[in-house]
Computed example of a mutant assay.
Amino acid sequence: MLWWERLEARLLAGDGSGAWAVVEAALVAGVSVEDIYTKVLSPAMVSIGDQWARGDLEIYYEHQASAIVGRIMGRLGPRFVGRGRTKGSIVVGAPQGERHGLVVSMVADLLRQRGWEVFDLGADLPAQSFIAAVKNTPDVVAACVSVTSPSARDAACELIAALREASGDAVPIYVGGAAVLSAPDAEELGAHGWASNVDVLVGLLEQG
């Protein structure tokens, strides 16, 4: 059984201690903390979300799993702090109506590990508050918008347009998430670029 499958079983059982034990065992076995996020936590949550979407699970299973994973990430988060000078500041968040916040926090931690100062705004944020955060963030080099739910695409489009106008198009805006399927899709939303995963996002950020 793969690590993410072991974790999924504990999440569905509502076993927070068991879920953490799976993560600890994976770390001892040599799985990197980055891979814990991308190859253990993320696929487990995607699988649970897919099962709910198919009608195979009640929604409380997803909420229960999200709460446990949030606690796990709280314990792992300090391991992602980068050392040395930062590459600048990045603001990450999800538009109003988008309630999936774990992916935002995962991206924030992974970018911190790569050397950026990251301001995590979480999920379901009104556009004007997102704009205020970008304006008040020193040395901001980019804003990243996460869109998991197709129903949040319109809000994401409005947010990106408002961010571009407020910054005078001076702050690059990158978009990613399960509801954004391609670079043309991201362009349709008004973003400067599409990040299919964190490595792609890092490449976009380093290109400027």
Rank of each mutant, 00 (worst) to 15 (best):
L181S: 15
A170Q: 15
M1P: 14
W4K: 11
R85C: 11
A179T: 08
G190N: 10
W52T: 08
V107T: 14
E5D: 10
E8H: 07
V40I: 14
T86I: 10
P138H: 04
W4R: 09
G208H: 07
R6E: 11
S42A: 15
S89I: 01
A44N: 01
A65P: 03
A156C: 12
I59A: 12
K87C: 10
A183R: 15
G101W: 07
E5L: 06
G77T: 11
P95Q: 09
K87V: 04
R153G: 00
G74S: 13
W4H: 15
R153Y: 01
A132T: 12
L163V: 02
A142I: 09
G177D: 03
Y174G: 05
V140L: 00
V140I: 12
V92L: 01
V200H: 13
V46S: 08
V103H: 07
E8N: 06
P172N: 05
L189Y: 08
V23W: 04
S17K: 15
V46L: 14
H100I: 06
M106E: 07
L57E: 00
V180W: 06
I90K: 01
L7F: 03
Q128R: 14
E62Q: 13
D50M: 12
A191S: 03
A9N: 11
A108N: 02
E98N: 04
R71D: 13
L111D: 08
V200W: 01
D199W: 15
V46Q: 14
T137V: 01
G97Q: 06
C157T: 15
M106T: 06
Q113A: 14
G193N: 09
E158C: 08
Y174K: 03
R79E: 10
L205Q: 00
M73C: 11
W3E: 08
G115I: 00
W3R: 00
P126H: 03
V171N: 10
D124W: 02
Y37E: 13
L27M: 06
P126I: 01
P138Q: 02
R54T: 04
